[in-house]
């Protein structure tokens, strides 16, 4: 048996010795260099499927946003940028943005702090597996069911949560959804209840990969557990946290199900976040052109904010490495 690596002609392999034995004899049907088209053909079904389910609707969205979409016998009318121009005078659209940003910022802050704290507590705890399973249960409930569940829990007549809030003196007889001042917080609570476990789960995965030797070395140097977390664990779970924050951020920007079940956007416009307004315009008023324009702006802003978020939260170590600063 020869011990020399053989990689003649194959672009993926170099001539270096890989350290393990390979067989010299090639099979009879062996194409050492498949043509580029071979890969294109392989990828084609997936690309076509992807195009059908994502690119086509996206192009159609762009088309709609520049038209007044007609139904039945009525044909579509090209209106240029009128649908977009109208948005700047639409108070509900502008207010929807404000509410969405407020909601998203509060949700993310609470979820990150609570999710990471929970993960740290759960990590290597005595009943970790059972507790993780229990904490993950809210995530398995569909958002609309979560909305309906809290709708009953918040109810001013028979809701259990309302009774607790009232007993603690947080609320009077007005339920959390019955006031424009508190309704948004009622919705935030549902989101926090349902999606904090996701942050916990991802962070927990990150914590499992924190090198024990670094933790031990730090402790030998006299560091306590808090110092250990901030100086060793946190830098190590940073990439995981970034993924979690990014996922939740994008989810928040399309959050609608629970709001529709809880308030429908009210009282007044107090919970009419932009995605809710988009739903109203598109599927209650059937103004698909205007809805297309709202959706497109929402999509573009989500992408831009997502990129900014990645930039801001990028792993400092990686950032340093990319900028060429290797001094330490």
């Amino acid at each position: 048996m020869t011990t020399r690596a053989s990689s003649e002609g194959h672009p993926a392999l170099s001539d270096q010795d890989w350290g393990f034995a390979t067989v010299d004899q090639k099979p009879e049907i062996y194409n050492p260099q498949p043509s580029r088209m071979f890969y294109v053909y392989l990828a084609m079904p997936a690309v076509l499927l992807l195009a059908a389910i994502t690119i086509y609707p996206f192009l159609w969205l762009i088309y709609m946003s520049f038209h007044k979409v007609g139904f039945g016998n009525a044909s579509d009318v090209f209106v240029g940028v009128k649908n977009f121009a109208r948005l700047f005078n639409d108070s509900k659209y502008l207010q929807g943005w404000g509410l969405l940003l407020k909601y998203s910022a509060i949700c993310l802050s609470i979820q990150v702090v609570a999710g990471v704290s929970l993960a740290v507590i759960l990590n290597n705890s005595r009943h970790e597996k059972i507790l993780v399973t229990l904490f993950l249960m809210p995530m398995m409930v569909s958002p609309v069911v979560a909305g309906l569940l809290f709708y009953y829990l918040y109810n001013g007549t028979f809701g259990w949560y309302h009774w607790i809030f009232q007993s603690l003196g947080i609320l009077d007889e007005t339920s959390i959804l019955g006031s424009a001042d508190t309704a948004l917080y009622g919705i935030i609570l549902v989101d926090v209840w349902q999606w904090t476990p996701l942050i916990t789960l991802i962070t927990l995965a990150g914590l499992k990969r924190v090198p024990q030797d670094q933790l031990e070395a730090n402790m030998v140097d006299g560091a306590g557990s808090i110092s250990n977390f901030f100086h060793v664990s946190l830098p190590n779970i940073y990439p995981f946290l970034l993924i979690a924050v990014l996922l939740r951020f994008m989810d928040n920007f399309r959050f609608i199900d629970a709001i529709l079940a809880l308030t429908g956007g009210g009282p007044g416009n107090a919970t009419r976040l932009l995605p809710v307004y988009l739903f109203d315009v598109s599927f209650k008023f059937f103004k698909l052109g205007r809805g297309g324009a709202i959706a497109l702006t929402l999509l573009i802003v989500t992408i831009i904010l997502g990129m900014i978020l990645v930039k801001v939260l990028e792993d400092p170590a990686r950032k340093k490495a990319l900028s060429g600063d290797t001094d330490g």
């Binding site: 109810n155 339920s175 009282p267």
Partner: peptide
């Protein structure tokens, strides 16, 4: 009215 008027 009943204080929970806006939720009902």
């Amino acid at each position: 009215c009943h204080p929970d008027n806006l939720a009902n």
